[in-house]
């Protein structure tokens, strides 16, 4: 009996250590990725204090030499050098990707909450809200960006106050597009969460003398928004990925910049594998971050039902 159970126990422990090694590697990769990004950004803002602006943080030659020195990796020395050469483009594009995502998500959220609240508690406004979300969720995001950029030519109408914040005003068109689109999706998630807050919570709020609006604000939203975190994380991840569509309206974000290099160098394989990995790193960071947020704001008994 004892001998029969041992292999299983050992296998379990091996799997465990395996997993913790994997986790450690992931954390290390994440630290390296963000360290590189932040240092590159700071270098650019400060006008090239570490290396001249546009240069990789580590010399291409050194990396090629290092790869060349290791027997198994020598064949990849040129590729590694090329990737290092690409890093300034990557960090620049990623900056815009991060900014567009962050700003659009925040603005979208600010619109989404009232949209969801009117959808659940409004009368006539519920229909307006429904129409808005259905329309925006029923058509492709790329078509919406085309309407704003080609159809309405909004890039020429960016108000003076915000014009010039980015090197190109078209960035605002992309932000507007993602905000309007994201608001519709976020509103849908928040609506679902608000509807899952029990009726008795509202009754109790009203019974101590809170008005309907106060009850929504102090009682329903704090609970509903917590319920909404998991699906809201999805929206965050979606937005990071779909921000790449801004490249189609000439916003120089990550995809646009690497695609430009690809069409000049024809090294599609390497460039797009690296681009994909960069997006993947952003996405994984976002979902880890949101897991943390969810833990931080979690309350015993709230949202636990959802795990079943």
């Amino acid at each position: 009996m004892a001998s029969a159970t041992r292999p299983a126990a050992i296998r379990e422990r091996v799997a465990d250590s395996d997993r913790s090694v994997g986790r450690l590697l992931l954390v290390a990769a994440g630290a390296l990725f963000w360290g590189w990004l932040v240092v590159s950004w700071i270098n650019r803002w400060l006008g090239g204090v570490i290396v001249p602006v546009g240069q990789p943080l580590v010399p291409v030659g050194a990396v090629e030499a290092a790869f060349g020195a290791i027997p198994g990796l020598a064949a990849y020395a040129a590729d590694a050098g090329f990737v290092v050469e690409l890093t300034p483009v990557l960090s620049r594009g990623t900056w815009l990707t991060v900014v567009i995502t962050g700003v659009s998500l925040t603005l979208g959220f600010i619109i989404a909450v009232p949209l969801a609240v009117t959808r659940v508690y409004g009368r006539f406004s519920a229909w307006l809200s429904l129409g808005y979300t259905e329309l925006l969720r029923g058509t492709p995001l790329l078509a919406q960006l085309f309407v704003l950029y080609y159809g309405l030519n909004l890039a020429s109408y960016v108000p003076g106050a915000v014009s010039g914040v980015f090197a190109r005003d078209v960035v605002w068109v992309a932000i507007l597009g993602f905000t309007l689109n994201g608001a519709a999706y976020q509103a849908e998630y928040i609506r679902g969460a608000l509807e899952s807050v029990e009726e008795g919570q509202i009754t109790a709020g009203r019974a101590i003398g809170l008005s309907k609006l106060e009850t929504i604000y102090h009682v329903v939203l704090p609970q509903g928004l917590r319920y909404a975190i998991p699906s809201w994380t999805n929206e965050f991840v979606y937005l990071i990925k779909y921000s790449s569509l801004a490249g189609f309206i000439t916003v120089p974000e990550l995809y646009y910049r690497t695609n430009q290099v690809a069409s000049e160098t024809f090294r599609y394989t390497l460039i797009f594998v690296v681009t994909g990995m960069t997006y993947l790193a952003l996405v994984l960071t976002a979902s880890k971050l949101m897991e943390r947020v969810e833990d931080r704001v979690s309350i015993p008994g709230l949202g636990a039902e959802r795990e079943e």
Partner: peptide, 19 residues
């Protein structure tokens, strides 16, 4: 699955097409 869900569809399409 994680890789496919974490990469923009435009990147996936281009990798399919060119790579």
């Amino acid at each position: 699955g994680v890789v496919l869900r974490g990469t923009p569809i435009v990147v996936i399409l281009i990798v399919m097409y060119f790579v």
